[in-house]
């Protein structure tokens, strides 16, 4: 109930500010104008198209980075020397804003989905590797001693002990890096694409249609929350509950 009250409060502040003459109508569209523009964009089919385009880009870039980043983190976590060797490099790239790669992304991959995949990958790969790696490096040694008693070795050790021991932390870092991906996609699409939610905002800006821009912003926020809810469901799996309850 409380979140709804906050939301209604925010909406009414917005409404009252928009009916005063503090800002001209084109600079601060009213909730009503945004609702109208939402209807317009839906009927034109543009919004749906942009949503699908953005979701697809984030999904591909994010899955690619998880498929490479989690195994890389598992490996680095288990090998102290490799960790030592790679840590400065990983940290360097982690602090490099993914947006800095935009010019390269466009020159290397031209306009379309590919530069967006690349930027999402660059934004999420390094935090995922680092989080997985440090999770593995801090697994209590008692688990490995028990594993040795019961003859877990090689791949079985990785699948049955190392991976489940860090799964709760991996899920958390997936949620965090998914958040980064969703922020980055908007910027990536502003420059590297011909459609998508980011491109929609960019186009609205060019046409000075801030009502449409706000409508896109709201969709971005709501979709981001929605997908995080989905990822949150992973934390309810019975074999990871321990990681959140102790």
């Amino acid at each position: 109930m409380l979140p709804v009250i906050v939301l209604l409060g925010l909406l009414s502040i917005w409404y009252f500010v928009s009916i005063t003459d503090l800002f001209p109508g084109y600079a601060l569209p009213s909730p009503l104008a945004v609702a109208k523009s939402f209807r317009e964009e839906m009927l034109a089919g543009r919004l749906i198209n942009d949503i699908i385009a953005s979701l697809w880009r984030v999904a591909v870039g994010f899955v690619l980075s998880a498929l490479l980043g989690i195994p890389a983190g598992l490996w680095l976590g288990q090998h102290m020397h490799a960790r030592h060797a790679f840590l400065p490099m990983l940290n360097f790239f982690r602090f490099l804003s993914p947006l800095a790669w935009i010019p390269f992304a466009i020159l290397w991959f031209h306009i379309g989905d590919k530069p967006a995949f690349f930027l999402i990958f660059m934004a999420t790969f390094f935090p995922l590797v680092l989080a997985t790696m440090s999770a593995v490096a801090t697994i209590p040694s008692i688990y490995f001693r028990v594993a040795q008693d019961y003859h877990y070795k090689g791949l079985e050790l990785l699948r049955k002990v190392t991976f489940p021991a860090v799964l709760p932390q991996i899920i958390t870092s997936l949620r965090v890096s998914y958040g980064i991906a969703w922020v980055v996609i908007v910027a990536a699409e502003m420059v590297g694409c011909q459609d998508g939610l980011g491109y929609g905002i960019w186009e609205a800006r060019n046409g000075l249609r801030l009502d449409s821009a706000v409508c896109y912003m709201m969709v971005i926020g709501l979709l981001g929350m929605g997908i995080d809810r989905l990822l949150y469901q992973l934390t309810k799996l019975p074999n990871v509950r321990w990681g959140y309850e102790r």
């Binding site: 008692i142 001693r145 028990v146 002990v161 489940p164 021991a165 074999n239 321990w242 990681g243």
Partner: peptide, 12 residues
């Protein structure tokens, strides 16, 4: 096989 003081079970 060893029994430890605590937390020797695999929580997952």
């Amino acid at each position: 096989r060893t029994i430890h003081q605590q937390d020797g079970l695999f929580p997952w």
